[in-house]
Design a protein around this nucleic acid. Structure first.
Length: 502
RNA sequence: AGUCCCGUAGGCGAAUUGGUAUAAGCCGUCACCCCCUCAAGGUGAAGAUGCCAGUUCAAAUCUGGUCGGGACUACCA
């Protein structure tokens, strides 16, 4: 039997990191098994579903490289299917009409909680007579459809990550609503548990892989599979991604939307890698950097951890840096060019290409994340979620190559006032001719100036750095100088610095 | 309140399924090296089986209890 799995997000928000991780596990399992990965949009909640969220989810999955084989299917286009299933359950006496109002149910729950009981529906309308029903209808009440759950039923399945899980019918909260109320029709929109089961049956899903938060739903759904006369699929309940406090990652707090990770400068490869690592380990557990394709070759559920995993920004940063460091210079340059353009730097992507690649080669090995376009947004994120941490921004790191004139930081100004700074810069200026500058030549000049002027090498280097870059920190100085020299920027900067130096 | 799930260093996680004297590896932290600087990189250090019983020649691994954490208990998904 071919493996068929699905990811079934609901378009009530942007693609969430938790949903994405579930998608990753489904995708990995499908690819490992040579199976089919299906995308289904669960949009039966008309009030909260929005088409822009659907768009966001689709784009997010694509960005992560989680290509699907079938779909997207939309539940709102499959309403007939659910209607038939609900009617069938009604006809078989496995479901019934419940006329309780929301206020009545609310009151009932309050009373239960006050009595320190677990809140549950008390099945009060399970055995309504025709007269009682007629009376409620006459009042103008419209029913929901409830599926009967016998208290003494025992539900049990062999979970692919957790082993045997057993549930009692009495702990499922009473007979469950499977269809909403409708003013105009016999019954309204189907509810999650019903629609999921009908779809999973119809789409011949063999393995249901989803978050641990669905365990209780699984018990209810198994009952529905049986009521509808279908085989029950395999289930795998994956551990949740937790926040720093150890709670389920909320959709409302913090960075959880996939495109926020993109905006923060993470690559899809790094994010996919990290999400895989959150709960799964390779048979060679020392291997932590891998593509989704590589992970798929060895992905099995017996290597999925049971305990929830806290999201660790530091580790994600590190993984992202590994990807950026390994990226060939030419590819990294491709990634950086749009950001340089966006920053307003003037250059010709074509003719300046070799020059740009030198800059990339210089800063590439120390990058953690790609640049962030929206600085204000970043600053806001950094204050909201301190764990994200500020990392060196590639655009800022390379700014001094692109601007015609650098602005001196306070530290750089101070350096130019240092004893020997002026002497060093003058000597360097005199040593510069119009020839091409190589790293060797640059080092030679520095060495020569150090010796002839009887200065410390540190003074010469620091002063030169301040003069050329306007800062006292930054990438390798001789390389920077060489690159600046190619654009003839070094002489003017030395001149400008000398006017400020003591 | 009930039910279910989970518990290996600060975080992620491995341990050939009960068996090797020091319980892997990675992130983070700290130190050192490199170095004009900041990163990156290299080397090294500190740090853990929640607790209590039991079974056994032997327990991170099995059992019971206990403590702690989480999820769920919708006319949301």
């Amino acid at each position: 039997m071919t493996v068929r799995v699905r990811i079934a997000p609901s378009p009530t928000g942007n693609l969430h990191i938790g949903t994405a991780r579930t998608a990753v596990f489904n995708w990995l399992f499908a690819r490992h098994q040579g199976g089919t990965f299906i995308l289904r949009i669960e949009d039966t909640d008309l009030e909260r579903s929005r088409s822009e969220y659907t768009e966001n989810i689709l784009e997010g999955l694509k960005w992560l490289g989680l290509n699907w084989d079938e779909g997207p299917f939309f539940q709102t286009k499959r309403l007939d299917l659910y209607r038939q299933a609900i009617q069938k359950l009604l006809d078989q006496g496995l479901a019934y009409r419940c006329y309780s109002t929301e206020e009545e149910l609310e009151k009932m729950r309050e009373a239960q909680v006050a009595r320190k009981e677990a809140p549950r529906y008390d099945n009060r309308h399970r055995n309504l007579t025709a007269e009682q029903q007629a009376a409620f209808e006459a009042e103008g009440r419209r029913p929901v459809i409830r599926f009967k759950i016998e208290d003494d039923r025992e539900i049990s399945w062999n979970d692919m990550v957790r082993g045997r899980i057993t549930w009692k019918g009495s702990d499922l909260g009473g007979d469950m609503v499977i269809a909403r109320r409708s003013e105009s029709e016999d019954f309204g929109q189907p509810l999650y548990n019903l629609a999921v089961v009908v779809d999973d049956i119809d789409m011949q899903i063999t393995h249901v892989i989803r978050g641990e938060d669905h365990i209780a739903n699984t018990a209810k759904q198994i009952l529905l599979y049986q009521a509808l006369g279908s085989a029950v699929p395999e289930f795998a309940h994956t551990p949740l991604i937790l926040n720093k406090q150890g709670q389920k990652l909320s959709k409302r707090k913090g960075v959880t939307s996939i495109f926020d990770f993109k905006k923060l400068g993470f690559t899809p490869e790094a994010l996919g890698n990290y999400m895989t690592l959150l709960g799964w380990s390779s048979p060679d557990s020392t291997k932590e950097i891998f593509t989704l394709e590589q992970a798929a070759t060895e992905f099995t559920f017996d290597r999925v951890n049971k305990a929830g995993a806290k999201f660790d920004w530091d580790k994600l940063n590190w993984i992202n840096s590994q990807y950026l460091h390994k990226l060939p210079v030419s590819q990294l340059t491709d990634l950086l060019i749009p950001f340089w353009q966006e920053a307003g730097f003037t250059f010709d992507p074509e003719s300046d290409r070799p020059w740009l690649e030198q800059i990339t080669a210089l800063i590439g090995p120390s990058l953690i994340r790609l640049p962030v376009s929206d600085r204000a947004w970043l600053d806001q994120m950094l204050t909201q979620i301190p764990d994200i941490t500020a990392v060196p921004d590639p655009v800022e790191m390379s700014r001094y190559f692109f601007v015609s004139q650098v602005e001196f930081t306070e530290e750089a100004k101070a350096q130019l006032q240092q004893e020997g700074a002026k002497t060093a810069l003058e000597a360097i200026q005199n040593a510069l001719d119009n020839q091409e500058l190589t790293a060797e030549l640059a080092q030679g000049i520095i060495k020569q100036v150090t010796k002839e002027q009887n200065l410390k090498k540190g003074v010469v280097m620091r002063s030169l750095r301040a003069a050329l870059t306007g800062d006292v920190h930054g990438p390798d100085l001789t390389e920077s100088w060489v690159i600046l020299h190619q654009k003839k920027l070094d002489k003017a900067r030395l001149q400008e610095a000398l006017s400020q130096a003591k």
